[in-house]
């Protein structure tokens, strides 16, 4: 069972209270962008086996979107943080690196 702490209201929410939103930190491309950029934004996904940054919504709580750092290979949760950011905060990165010394921050590679 997945439990994520909502960074807004502090509730430790169990999965049925949450709505999943998949990959976080996607850069949005709209009208005027190239087909490649638009395809990447819409469809190409990192889908890593390991550290992953995701969007979640506290659907049956405060209703707000937040972000989570999680391991898809073990279901370990490293931490959650507010959605008003374009990259994971330093304390989350530190937590991940403490648990996964080999992991390299890679969200910047997201096109």
């Amino acid at each position: 069972m997945l439990i994520l702490e909502c960074p807004y209201c502090g509730v430790k929410a169990e999965e049925t209270e949450l709505a999943p939103g998949y990959e976080a930190h996607l850069k949005r491309f709209g009208p005027g962008s190239s087909p490649e950029e638009f395809e990447d934004y819409m469809f190409a996904r990192k889908n890593p086996k390991g550290v992953h940054f995701e969007r979640w919504r506290h659907a049956y709580g405060c209703g707000k979107w937040f972000l989570a750092a999680r391991c898809t290979a073990t279901l370990e949760v490293f931490g959650t943080y507010p959605a008003q950011t374009s990259e994971p905060p330093a304390d989350i990165i530190a937590k991940i690196q403490a648990r996964r010394p080999d992991w390299q921050p890679d969200w910047k590679g997201t096109k």
């Binding site: 999965e15 709505a19 999943p20 889908n47 890593p48 086996k49 999680r70 898809t72 073990t74 279901l75």
Partner: peptide
């Protein structure tokens, strides 16, 4: 399930 997962385990609900 609604999230990326490689564990071959799903959510009970």
């Amino acid at each position: 399930d609604g999230f990326n997962n490689y564990t071959q385990r799903g959510s009970f609900h």
